Simulated assay, not measured.
Amino acid sequence: MPKPIIFIEDQLCFLVSSSVPSNNSRGTVSRSSKSRSKGASASSVFYLTVDNKFEFQPFFEGYDFGPLHLAHVYYFCRLVDYKLKELAKLQQQLCIVTSLNGKKRANAAWLMCAYMLLRQGKTPEEAYAPVKDMYPPFIPFRDAAQSMSTFDLTILDCLRGLKKAVQFGFFDYDKFNGEEYLFYEQVENGDLNWIVPGKCIAFSGPHPRRLGSDGYMHFTPEDYFDMFKRWGVSGIVRFNKKIYDARRFTQNGFNHHDFFFVDGGLPTEVI
């Protein structure tokens, strides 16, 4: 079996394997020299995989694959905190196991590193250090487009972004509402996320009719009114093509602005 990578000595490790070891196999991970000096030899290990618990929903199958979103990170952290506390009573270590699949491997490593940053107070570089030399290198994340990726987003990039979000109050672990995040990110519930809590929301462009020409149900401008007024939203900025009449917002008390640029492209200097 491959050697686990230690994240927290005697408590938490990470394993890439073709299969998840049985928790009846009495696997062990060597303890630290400090623990051995107290007479301890090796710690039994509890193996846990989250590959199928936290899954990325791609926009284009076969292209974009991550990183796993903030609710995934939040619930993973809660799970690890709970398991570490539970296993400490049994003198067991927790080992998070991921598969050899490159995409799942990258997402699992992202979760592990994010945990170290959010719950163990590590810097992005410290959180990434245990896996930075893993071979083969992690597949970088990419944009949701059916074309060659022109920018590789690494796990370290994501960690630095998460650190900034924490520093500026965009993400507060203790106040984060995971249930609300998961609810509103669903297309049938608005397909929206707070970018800057209390100030800026990103949401899917409304459609002129609920039943679209594609046969799917969509949100119309009116479907957003109640939630936007409840959250104090006063202005709408449309970046994509005009498929609804802006007056449906302006005649109901919202400001509306158009700054069009090609979907998947970059805004102009003027925008």
Rank of each mutant, 00 (worst) to 15 (best):
P2A: 13
E9F: 11
Q11M: 09
F14K: 02
L15Y: 03
L15P: 00
L15T: 02
S17G: 10
S18N: 14
P21E: 09
S22K: 15
S25K: 09
T28H: 15
V29P: 01
V29R: 02
V29Y: 02
S30M: 05
S30Y: 00
S32G: 10
S32H: 09
G39D: 04
G39T: 04
S44T: 06
Q57C: 09
Q57I: 11
P58T: 05
E61H: 13
G62V: 06
G62W: 07
Y63M: 10
Y63D: 05
D64M: 06
H72N: 06
C77F: 11
C77I: 04
R78Q: 15
L79D: 04
Y82G: 07
L84R: 13
L84H: 12
E86D: 08
E86Q: 05
E86H: 05
L90H: 03
L90A: 05
L94W: 11
L94A: 12
T98H: 06
S99V: 02
G102M: 10
R105G: 07
N107W: 15
W110F: 14
A114Y: 12
M116C: 13
L118V: 12
K122A: 11
P124S: 10
A127V: 02
P130H: 10
K132A: 03
M134P: 07
F138E: 02
A144E: 01
Q146N: 12
Q146L: 15
T150G: 01
T154K: 08
L156M: 14
C158P: 12
R160S: 13
L162E: 13
A165N: 07
V166K: 08
F168K: 15
F170M: 06
F171M: 04
E179L: 10
E180N: 08
Y181N: 06
F183Q: 03
Y184T: 01
E185D: 05
N189A: 01
N193T: 09
V196T: 08
V196N: 05
G198T: 08
G198A: 09
K199H: 07
C200W: 10
F203K: 01
S204E: 08
S204N: 07
G205M: 06
D214N: 04
Y216G: 01
M217N: 04
T220W: 02
P221E: 00
F225V: 05
F225S: 00
M227R: 00
K229P: 01
K229I: 01
G232I: 02
G232K: 04
V233D: 05
G235V: 14
V237E: 07
R238W: 10
R238E: 12
F239W: 08
K242P: 07
A246S: 10
A246N: 04
F260R: 07
